[in-house]
Design a protein around this nucleic acid. Structure first.
Lengths: 194, 194
DNA sequence: TACCGAACTGAAGGATCCTTCAGGTATATT
DNA sequence: AATATACCTGAAGGATCCTTCAGTTCGGTA
């Protein structure tokens, strides 16, 4: 009995991403999403109180996936260089796993007050990085929170930039992983206490 | 005779930023912008063919300001460390000069197909950075374009993240300049040919 | 089979919004 | 002062869109 509804939510979720991908925010319509999901608008509203909530839900889930990926990194005292690459890999791998979803979500980001609505997930993300920094074998961080924030923000920027460029250059994603590792390692080395 | 219209365009421009700042994209309405600018909707449509064009215009101008700031950096062979800090300073200073405008524009970014609509300015930005990298006294860059892109993207991410955090933390901008310099210098050092 | 609740449908209400255009007002020129 | 030109006004047309809800279908149960 739950099977039906579960599949429906999943379908709506997926349809939302597709609609976002094809038409952007401007054509992101509850009716259109429902249609694409193969259900009626009424059904959509049975699972999401309003349009914003739907938008927020898919954004939230994406952040959670990134958080999970970073939390899954073993925390035993590895050298900072290794940690840096692990974080970069975790971050980028989630983005690359669903390039379409990633692209779609970058279009929503502006419309939603990201920090006010998903401050918890962002904190969780930051905490996951802080934990890794703190456990580094060969370095310590006086301002681990700030360092984690800068690292995550810059990785986000690089990712966003690369996916954005995809619209005009097919090879925009080439070497993204390598650049992310380079950036991550360089910054963490520099941010560590001398 | 041109004075009137010039002031009007300027007023609309400014009003657009304010409206964006108060209500976000959802409440960004041609009528509202016109009202805030102290003119009628008809006047707005005399200078901008449609809503998107207005949005695009303010986004474009912002990018141009950043490009100008980076192009203004002297290109004589300075060490890479100095160049890195110059770039970071130029970038961040534009953002900090009008924090409200910056915040407002980050909300538009998603709605507009950034790369398709302003590819020229972005290329110009990238070229300005490439020029500086090429003229560095103590380093050479095999892939100057890619390095410039990564640098700019990561700076954008850090800036965006910090301004976004402003909604929940008043001191989010503290130390932004220092972090940007640290990030920029660390990455460029690492990206330079060994 | 008859019944019940969960899940789903989709037309319609109510609210904006974008854009146009016929007409008004200010400034400059002759 | 009269005329031409540049600017500006704002009501209204036309198009969506979000959201609701009375009614229908489906899966399981007695």
């Amino acid at each position: 009995m739950q099977a039906r509804s579960g599949a429906t939510v999943q379908a709506i979720h997926e349809a939302a991403i597709q609609v976002l991908l094809t038409g952007g925010l401007a054509l992101f319509t509850t009716t259109r999403v429902a249609e694409r999901a193969g259900v009626s608008v009424g059904t959509l509203y049975q699972y999401f109180p309003n349009k914003q909530a739907l938008l927020f839900a898919i954004l939230l889930r994406h952040f959670e996936q990134i958080a999970e990926a970073i939390e899954a990194i073993p925390g035993d005292g590895k050298p900072i260089a290794a940690i840096a690459e692990d974080i970069a890999d975790a971050y980028i791998s989630v983005k690359l796993a669903r390039p379409d979803a990633t692209t779609a979500l970058y279009r929503v980001a502006g419309a939603i007050d990201q920090f006010r609505m998903s401050a918890d997930v962002l904190k969780r993300l930051e905490a996951a990085v802080v934990r890794l920094l703190t456990n580094a074998a060969d370095a310590s961080f006086r301002q681990a929170e700030k360092t984690a924030f800068t690292l995550l923000s810059s990785l986000a920027g690089l990712s966003r930039g690369s996916f954005g460029k995809l619209a005009v250059a097919d090879d925009a994603l080439d070497g993204l992983g390598a650049e992310a590792r380079l950036l991550s390692a360089a910054y963490l080395r520099a941010a560590a206490d001398a």
